[in-house]
Design a protein around this nucleic acid. Structure first.
Length: 570
RNA sequence: CGGGGCGUAGCUCAGGUGGCUAGAGCACUUGCUUUGGGAGCAAGGGGUCGCACGUUCAAGUCGUGUCGCCCCGACCA
């Protein structure tokens, strides 16, 4: 492609509304253009990247025995009603009515649709297993779209759905998908980590997330270098090194005035204590019931753990009004002692604590030397805190590290969650009706493009891994108006194209510096400079974007060298 | 949905206590010069100042409403 003919608008300044590096660089590099909030047009070179990622995904999915299909973007309300998700999904699912006023959803995911297809076509164990996938636009009306393609409302997704006759089969396909995912991210040239995860809205029994590692990622991964286990911060159950003071004698309860001290840090500083000597009391609603949750002052509540431990479907923090009503004190002064009509659950660390500080359920007042058993009764102890760096690994005891990542893939073992409700079953060898066992496997294709940029960039711009770069090479023709340069550049362009190298020829009437900056901004892995200086020596200059390494090469050897570089860069 | 902010040229942004013809840089067009790190000179084109209503002799500027966009939070691939 000749640059002068491409729609490839680069920008010196990033638009004011771009916040993170991938968003800025993709807009500046002409990869994407915002059409509405959270809705982007993919510009030509952006599409090239997306298609390369998609091609790798297709290849690995096909190799793993999956079969591609394409489902409609609109799905009828009736299917969603069958699983209950028409009402459960909430506003994130965009709903539309057709001319006859029939209700449809803009597909945020396709479990219902695929299950409907499979239940009507699969009747016998002989038809199993099945693993079907599509690469398609999804729409989720996000509460707050942000970060460009990282959290867009409309996005490209690969979603696969497997159907098996038994657990053994389901686990085998899950393992195959896991392996395929590892291959996909590796082939795309990305550093990533697979972690244990919460299954969230989709549901199911277990699940993994695939994180592209990037310091700017929103997700926190807790992992163990020694045994290799890794989990999303929400899921991770590290053991804290907290030893407590359980052997201390119980001291008499004491009321202290703490005017306007609401936060743990304020109270701790005021009482000259460490935050870990305080206990925070959080009022939550667990399936509508108020619950007081106690944690060591420097720990944070992991609501997912609370939800799981209490076998609840919905957990949220109480609003200020409810807190005041339940504790008869303003927010910031809640404590377990004296609480009535409310269940009290505590993190396990409290077992090790004596003579701690809590709120007094009274404005501007805290209690010192509080002890459970004596001053209040804990209904249950659970692991409720967020694991953090420095905790020790539950499986091997080694110290845990944390990393930031961007979630680009998610695999779920769904079991019969959908197939049961939708009566998707088959007859086994004995003629008995059995429910299909399902799994689902997603990759955010467009998010992956953004995550790659987030992982691979420098001050000058994007640094694409070769496998997903829009072009392998760019020929920067300095002064293309000069006949000798034009001839040399055109010849090289033709030779590279013939050799299967995807190459962009910068034939614009721009100054050299401008073209260099543009080439670096859009992130093409290999740049070949064709200019008078090199031609005098019958040479071109080759520059590798990633290493900034430059070499002079005789014009006749350029194609071979570039082919070699392209092969190695991967 | 709660809190905050912003809408002026393709992009970044001035102007804002009302005042006559709305500005700058970058980008764009033409010409000349230039050509190995975001070139120089000259001449140009481009705006219903988000939209509506109101106040006023007069609104980019003040008021009300509305729409859009962004940030923080709750929520999430």
């Amino acid at each position: 492609m000749k640059w002068s003919r491409a729609l490839l608008p680069t920008l010196k300044d990033a638009p004011a509304d771009a916040e993170i590096v991938s968003h800025k660089l993709m807009i500046r590099g002409g990869y994407i253009k915002k059409t509405a909030s959270g809705i982007y047009s993919i510009m030509p070179i952006g599409l090239r990247v997306l298609q390369k990622i998609a091609a790798i995904i297709r290849d690995e999915m096909n190799k793993a025995g999956a079969e591609e299909l394409l489902m409609p973007i609109l799905s009828p309300a009736e299917l969603w009603t069958e699983t209950g998700r028409w009402s459960l999904y909430g506003k994130e699912m965009m709903r539309v009515n057709d001319r006859a006023d029939r209700k449809f959803a803009l597909g945020p995911t396709h479990e219902e649709v695929i299950t409907d297809i499979v239940r009507s076509e699969v009747r016998s164990y002989r038809d199993l297993p099945k693993n079907l996938y599509q690469i398609q636009i999804k729409f989720r009306d996000e509460i707050r779209p942000r970060f460009g393609l990282i959290r867009a409302r409309e996005f490209m997704m690969k979603d696969a759905y497997s159907f098996d006759r038994d657990e053994k089969g389901a686990e085998a396909v899950y393992a195959a998908m896991f392996k395929a995912y590892e291959n996909i991210f590796t082939r795309c040239g990305l550093k990533f980590r697979a972690v244990e995860a919460e299954s969230g809205n989709i549901g199911g029994s277990f699940s993994h997330e695939f994180m592209v590692l990037a310091s700017t990622g929103e997700e926190t991964i807790i992992h163990c270098e020694k045994c290799g286990c890794a989990a999303n911060r929400e899921r991770s159950g590290g053991k804290s090194g907290f030893t407590g003071n359980a052997s201390e004698a119980e001291k008499p309860l004491e009321k202290v005035s703490t005017p306007k001290m609401k936060s743990i840090d304020e109270v701790a500083a005021f009482l000259k204590k460490k935050p870990s000597e305080l206990v925070k009391t959080l009022i939550c609603f667990v399936d509508g019931e108020p619950v007081a949750v106690l944690l060591k002052g420097d720990d944070d509540l992991n609501e997912h753990k609370l939800k799981r431990q209490m076998d609840a479907t919905e957990v949220f923090m109480a609003d200020a009004k409810s807190v005041e009503k339940l504790t008869s004190a303003p927010v910031g002064f809640a404590g377990p002692a004296g609480l009535k009509n409310i269940k009290i659950v505590a993190d396990e660390s409290l077992k090790l604590m004596k003579n701690f500080v809590t709120g007094a359920n009274e404005a501007d007042t805290h209690l010192q030397n509080v002890n459970h058993g004596r001053d209040f009764k804990v209904d249950a102890f659970f692991d409720l805190r967020f694991a953090c760096e420095g905790d020790s690994c539950v499986s091997c005891g080694h110290t845990l590290n944390s990393q930031k990542g961007i979630e680009v893939g998610h695999t779920f073992k769904l079991g019969t969650k959908y197939t049961e409700k939708m009566k998707a079953d088959f007859l086994d060898e004995t003629g008995k009706r059995q429910t299909l066992i399902m799994g689902c496997y997603g990759i955010g294709v467009s998010r992956m493009m953004a995550a790659a940029v987030e992982q691979c960039n420098d001050a000058a711009g994007i640094i694409w891994p070769l496998e997903i770069a829009p072009y392998h090479a760019v020929i920067t023709a300095i002064n293309y108006q000069d006949e000798a340069i034009k001839v040399a550049a055109d010849k090289l362009y033709g030779a590279l194209s013939a050799a299967g190298i995807e190459v962009l020829l910068d034939d614009r009437e721009m100054s050299a510096g401008f073209k260099f900056k543009d080439a670096e901004l859009i992130g093409i892995p290999i740049r070949i400079t064709v200019g008078a200086r090199g031609l005098k020596e019958d040479s071109f200059e080759i520059a590798v974007r990633k290493t900034k390494e430059t070499i002079m090469i005789k014009t006749g050897e350029a194609v071979a060298k570039i082919k070699e570089l392209a092969a190695h860069a991967g």
